[in-house]
């Protein structure tokens, strides 16, 4: 009878009106959601919330470089934005803390197969607001060598940063690209090697935003962040990779 218990539980949970305190069902019906939610979110309350906008293309033209924009500006008091691909071997792409920045981030990710792509947004009241959808993709986004490894020129351009600031109504837009192979460790004879951290500081040295970054972010990462309106430069960018190298850059509006 022991083996029957999970089935019985499943039946109970499936019956509407059951009095058990069931967790909210994942609208994407992902086989990995419960697992990821347990290690990422613990027992914190979760709300599947359309207030979090996750903008992605309709077509996965390139599973190595798939753009995602998370816009959580409709929520107050955002503490963290986590981008999660349920079925990726490296499921978390970034964990962004927009300290003074607006709760908004664009990035490019690798997709290893068809998977839910989601944003998990933590607000100050301790609630995680979750949104996203299934993205179809050909396999292998995490297990093919990056272009710069194939070309062999990655080391010559490592850490080259490009970017700019734009004054916009309501924010200061920051666009940043950096050359880095972002090796996942899943390619023969190429160890994992990726940018791990990004910090954006204002002229007074205070952090505007900090981000933890994993190898499931695409080669040559590119980010859009929205800083507070009227930021005057210089804005300092600091990155560190998994070999202990650091990369610094400065931006003025």
């Amino acid at each position: 009878m022991k083996r029957a218990a999970p089935f019985l539980l499943a039946i109970l949970l499936a019956v509407p009106g059951t009095t058990l305190a069931a967790p909210v069902a994942d609208p994407l019906d992902s086989p990995m959601w419960a697992n990821h939610a347990a290690w990422l979110l613990g027992k914190a309350p979760v709300r599947f919330d359309p207030a979090v906008i996750v903008a992605m293309p309709d077509v996965t033209e390139n599973q190595h470089v798939f753009p995602v924009t998370v816009d959580a500006r409709a929520l107050a008091g955002v503490q963290r934005i986590v981008v999660l691909m349920d079925l990726n071997p490296l499921p978390v792409a970034i964990d962004y803390q927009p300290q003074a920045a607006l709760p908004y981030v664009s990035l490019r990710i690798k997709l290893d197969q068809r998977t839910p792509v989601r944003a998990l947004v933590l607000t100050a009241d301790g609630v995680w607001h979750v949104a996203g959808r299934w993205i179809d993709a050909a396999g292998g986004g995490c297990s093919a060598p990056p272009v710069s490894r194939v070309k062999g020129d990655w080391a010559q351009h490592l850490g080259e940063m490009r970017g700019a600031l734009w004054r916009e109504a309501g924010d200061t837009r920051l666009r940043l690209t950096v050359r880095h192979p972002m090796d996942t460790g899943y390619v023969d004879n190429i160890a994992a090697y990726n940018i791990e951290a990004l910090t954006v500081r204002g002229a007074d040295g205070a952090a505007l935003g900090t981000m933890a970054i994993n190898g499931s972010v695409s080669e040559d990462p590119a980010f859009t962040l929205l800083l507070p309106p009227g930021v005057s430069g210089p804005v300092h960018l600091h990155m560190a990779d998994s070999n202990g190298r650091t990369f610094d850059g400065n931006l003025t509006p």
Partner: peptide, 14 residues
Amino acid sequence: AALEQQHLPRIDAA
């Protein structure tokens, strides 16, 4: 990505 490499200015220490 290639257009960004062409059009965005370098901003790094190097």
